[in-house]
Design a protein around this nucleic acid. Structure first.
Length: 107
DNA sequence: ACCATGACGCACA
DNA sequence: ATGTGCGCCATGG
């Protein structure tokens, strides 16, 4: 995989159980320009390691779920929400409850 | 090598 | 508080 995407996946796996992270923080953790969260989204969208990489723990900076399985909404998103719920991360109206609290800062 | 797209983020109206 | 527009990076055709 491209170095960039590889780092993204590594960081995703590095997110602790019950915690979540944002594309922005991941980008910062990588150490690039800082506005690379765009590429981060693309990388996760490609997500070649679907179940191996806990991409469902990655959410938008405002606490929105963002997307899953290449879709911004749909049954897959519901599945993602359910997964997070099982990890103790409740999602209300598409937004994570106590988002800042459960947010894991890698950078 | 160039153009177009995207699971985002922030500024502005 | 809500809606719309623009900008950034990396990847794919």
């Amino acid at each position: 995989m491209s170095s960039f995407a590889d780092k993204v996946y590594a960081l995703c796996k590095r997110i602790p159980w019950g915690n979540v992270s944002t594309y922005k923080d991941i980008g910062k953790a990588i150490g690039s320009s800082g506005m690379i969260y765009r590429a981060v989204g693309v990388a996760l969208k490609h997500n070649p390691h679907a179940p191996i990489v806990p991409c469902h723990r990655v959410v938008a900076s405002d606490g929105s779920i963002g997307g899953f399985h290449g879709q911004t909404s749909g049954p897959f998103i519901a599945k993602k929400i359910a997964l997070l719920k099982e990890e103790g991360v409740l999602v209300k109206n598409g937004k994570i409850v106590d988002f800042e609290k459960k947010l894991y800062r890698l950078a």
